[in-house]
């Protein structure tokens, strides 16, 4: 009975895991940040989906309408998106620096260089 109504959460979960997998399994630092973005985007979708009310509309008040989606998650996610992009920017600038310092953005190569210089 309840299952059809949860499918989209499951899809979100799947999406999250794609991103999460990229974060932890990929050695390329840029790819890790991309994965992080997907992971977070999925989390955004999760929030926004829960805000949806069947038959509702965007929470901009209008006398003709009476059912609105929940505005609170929207607000939270606005904040979260911004935090996400801030993190991305920092992560990428660190990558640039790492590239300068090591000549590589591959996890394993960096480790090898590290091991060689010790």
């Amino acid at each position: 009975m309840s299952f059809p109504g949860l499918i989209n959460y499951w899809a979100v979960a799947a999406l999250m895991m794609i991103g999460f997998y990229a974060v932890i399994a990929h050695g390329n630092l840029v790819k890790k940040v991309i994965g992080l973005n997907i992971f977070q985007a999925a989390m955004f979708i999760f929030y926004i989906s829960m805000a949806k009310v069947r038959g509702g509309t965007a929470p901009i008040l209008d006398d003709d309408l009476s059912v609105f989606s929940n505005p609170l998650p929207h607000v939270l996610i606005l904040t979260a998106i911004v935090v996400g992009v801030a993190t991305t920017a920092l992560g990428l600038s660190l990558i640039v620096r790492i590239r300068d310092a090591y000549g590589s953005v591959e996890d394993e190569e960096i480790r090898a260089i590290e091991a060689a210089s010790d």
């Binding site: 840029v30 926004i48 949806k52 509309t57 965007a58 929470p59 989606s69 606005l78 911004v82 992009v85």
Partner: peptide, 22 residues
């Protein structure tokens, strides 16, 4: 999903700024 503000932001940030940064 009725989240117009969020959509606007995501488009600007995700598709815009992030892509440029990447």
């Amino acid at each position: 999903l009725d989240a117009v503000d969020v959509a606007f932001t995501e488009a600007a940030v995700g598709a815009g700024i992030s892509t440029v940064l990447f």
